[in-house]
Design a protein around this nucleic acid. Sequence first.
DNA 1: TTGCGTGCAAAGGTTTTGCATGGCA
DNA 2: TGCCATGCAAAACCTTTGCACGCAA
Lengths: 145, 145
Amino acid sequence: MKRDQGYNTRQKEKLIDYLVRNKEKHTNVQEISIYLAAEGTPVGTATIYRQLDKLVESGTVRKYSFDGKVGACYQYIDKEHECHEHFHLKCLVCGRLIHLDCDHLMSINRHIEEHHGFVIDPSQTVFYGRCADCIRAEAEAEDRS
Amino acid sequence: MKRDQGYNTRQKEKLIDYLVRNKEKHTNVQEISIYLAAEGTPVGTATIYRQLDKLVESGTVRKYSFDGKVGACYQYIDKEHECHEHFHLKCLVCGRLIHLDCDHLMSINRHIEEHHGFVIDPSQTVFYGRCADCIRAEAEAEDRS
DNA sequence: TTGCGTGCAAAGGTTTTGCATGGCA
DNA sequence: TGCCATGCAAAACCTTTGCACGCAA
């Protein structure tokens, strides 16, 4: 994880500003691009991608991508309020992000380290799936049909 | 999950044949395309995607898609040999993707479902961290400095 | 014969890259 | 001044779609 050593440019500043102000949600390049343009400070797509890459590289931003046509999502990592000790569940249906404090789960960390020689970084890892609400909603939709 | 009701065509047969013979590994559309062409029985890309979609739909094939430039991965589901769904580990340092077949880990699925009402989708979930090689390399770099 | 399957090419969308220019330090 | 950053357009990729033709049942 490298240090952030780049120049401070207007574009970079605006991008980070946007990410910080939206740190509780996911964004994608398209959203960022549209938003910054609307603010009167447009930033080229290529620049957004390049800056984002660096931010991910330096550990400032989290990138995740899953199946779908939306492309990758990005989220600013709030280092002060970041929860390093638990995993996150994200519902693919409603988009809700669930913080999961659970000792049992932390044991998988040890298991993987001991048996697979791999050290998981919980702050970077998100479990994707369906939350209880959406599962119920789907079941009901099933019944109706 | 629908029944497989399509016609039996040469292309479909060849595709399934390839998937079955490579059921212990992941493939992608590009690989399939190149392989089938090399075998003297080329199949159009569009057809591969369309057939694959149906196979995923009918539960014959598993599709994984996540971060990376490789596109989605596909794997035949060997129903008789109870080939498990598995998780993926991705090294944040070297970028390597590790396929993790491990019963112990699948149990976390059950745990989360039972205790947290959340159903994880392993095909969309990737554990991020550091692989054994990179941990060793980092330790050595540490020593040197 | 009917209608699904196929192949090609074109389109769509996301991300990357080449290159000349601009701007930070 | 020396480099890195930026923008634009083009390219690269993966995947989907339209359409005419082929082929299984």
